[in-house]
Amino acid sequence: MNTALPEAVLFDLDGTLIDTAPDFYAVINQLLAEHQRPPISYAFLRHYVSNGARAMIGAAFELAEQDDLYDQLHPRMLELYLQHLGVDTKPFPGIPSLLDWLGEQQIPWGIVTNKPECYTTPLMRGLDLQPPPGTVICPDHVRDKKPHPEALFLACKELNCSPERSIYIGDHARDIEAGRRAGMQTIAVSYGYLSEGDDINSWQSDFQAHHANEIKPILETLYSNR
């Protein structure tokens, strides 16, 4: 067992650190109403949040992969999301106390997300998580987004830590792939936005957490406080 403190703990954003599904639910149903379509259920939408705006639109409107309607719906959805940004979004239960513990242990933490900076920055400002992240890496900051490990390498550089002594936590197979390709320890979480048919056991993560409260004990088993 590694007896050194972790140099850094990095999180995916949507579905891992914060629950953005309620905001997307309001936005998608507003978009459906604008097109005289019936609303979808919250439970249905949660399966598509981690796969991005196109996936949510496609599922809600039952669109084929290359449907021309995407070009009309996609910019409107993003416009609505900017107007509704952070209204109902909250950290997942257990995350605030986990961040408190990281702060007490003086362990730097950061965010590596595929969410564009124009949404991430105002959202993080509104949430005011404490202690604040030492770095927030969005796809705007790199050439290749996850599952490519470039963003994780950049986060480690900004935190002055080594990838092999760092941990990445995510709710999607691409998060775990990115972490593994960066040489990090990985924790796959199932409390976020798993798609139907997702098998978290197939992601080859080092650990799994089914509630955010389970992350701290995993970290404590990996690294000594002394």
Rank of each mutant, 00 (worst) to 15 (best):
T16L: 07
T16I: 06
T16W: 10
L17I: 12
I18E: 01
D19N: 14
T20E: 05
A21P: 02
A21E: 05
A21K: 05
P22I: 00
V27N: 03
N29T: 12
N29I: 04
N29A: 12
L31E: 11
L32K: 15
H35I: 01
R37N: 06
P38D: 14
P39K: 11
I40T: 03
S41I: 09
S41D: 14
Y42M: 15
F44S: 12
S50E: 00
N51F: 14
N51D: 15
G52M: 05
G52K: 04
G58R: 01
A59E: 01
A59M: 06
A60N: 09
A60D: 05
F61I: 09
F61P: 08
A64I: 13
Q66E: 15
Q66I: 12
D67I: 13
D67K: 13
D68L: 12
D68E: 15
D68C: 09
D71W: 13
Q72E: 15
Q72A: 13
L73H: 09
E79K: 06
L80G: 02
L82V: 15
L85C: 10
L85T: 11
V87M: 09
V87G: 07
V87E: 11
D88C: 09
D88Y: 06
D88E: 10
D88T: 02
K90F: 00
P91M: 00
P91D: 01
F92P: 06
F92R: 05
G94W: 07
P96W: 00
P96G: 00
S97F: 07
L98W: 05
D100M: 03
D100I: 02
W101G: 04
L102K: 06
G103H: 08
Q105M: 13
Q106N: 12
I107W: 05
I107F: 08
P108F: 08
G110V: 04
G110Y: 06
V112K: 00
V112E: 00
N114F: 02
N114V: 04
K115Q: 02
T121K: 11
T121Q: 13
T121C: 12
L123V: 09
L123P: 03
R125Y: 15
L127R: 01
D128I: 04
D128Q: 07
P131D: 03
P132Q: 02
P133D: 09
P133H: 10
G134C: 08
T135C: 14
T135K: 11
V136T: 10
I137M: 04
P139W: 04
P139K: 05
H141A: 08
